[in-house]
Design a binder for these strands. Structure first.
Lengths: 131, 131
DNA sequence: GGTAATTTGTCCGTATGTATA
DNA sequence: CTATACATACGGACAAATTAC
């Protein structure tokens, strides 16, 4: 029973290796979809599936007409949270993504108090500090 | 410049409506891809694009050979967190997903103390209570 | 245990639309 | 205006996993 690695999974692995190796620094563009098709000898759906996963995890950000760029990592701003708060994390709705100007693949930190949401924070830019 | 709604976006909206209306209760299966193709008169890629989005947000869980089921919502277990901790949220790595037996589209709650990760919790099953 | 049917996964081809440079 | 790049959408074909019988 050999484990078989789907083509798009293999491609994800290779792209991650290249990013880690510094071949594509944060903020730089990956090769275009067509170039990736040529470079790796795979089909369009394979490339797009791989990029879709990397987007869904926030590793790359794709801009139509431009390309897929390696995500910049932000320094998170600290937000205080005090006794009695309840903290959860979840994915944003479409509307929350628009309102908070978030890119795909980024979760939300939600602070609740007395059952009400008192803070909804993009998790790539904020950290909570327990006071 | 009229705003146009892509077919897969429309389909996402319709499926969400049906889920909300109770047509597909948590744990139940959505119609198969072929059925959705027939029901909505669209191509398979449109259906698969829509399901991919619903998976990426954790709204459905797809099992090959079975189908896409509406995600069960768990009651979150409370975990205490004490003064001085730093809390972030992020998407899990593939390895974390395996180790914690997570489904796609679910973020992690990470508790740090003195710069070290002292807890890594699936955000759909855990909430943090500030003590 | 084995086969067939069902369902999703992968891969490819083609075409057209939209955004950016 | 043109070229490039990604987005959407249809189609076919076969592979892999599951289930029913």
């Amino acid at each position: 029973m050999t484990v078989y690695e789907p083509a798009y999974r293999r491609l994800i692995r290779l792209i991650r290796q290249d990013i880690k190796a510094g071949e594509y620094p944060p903020g730089s563009l990956l090769p275009s979809e067509n170039r990736l098709i040529q470079i790796h000898g795979v089909g369009r759906e394979t490339v797009r599936s791989a990029l879709a996963v990397l987007r869904s995890t926030g590793e790359v950000v794709t801009i139509r007409g431009v390309g897929s760029q390696v995500r910049e990592t932000f320094d998170r701003d600290d937000e205080p949270v005090t006794k009695g708060a309840r903290i959860i994390a979840r994915m944003p709705t479409d509307e929350e993504m628009r309102q908070l100007d978030m890119t795909p693949g980024v979760p939300l930190l939600v602070v609740e108090r007395d059952g009400r949401e008192v803070a909804v924070l993009p998790a790539d830019r904020k950290a909570l500090i327990v006071k």
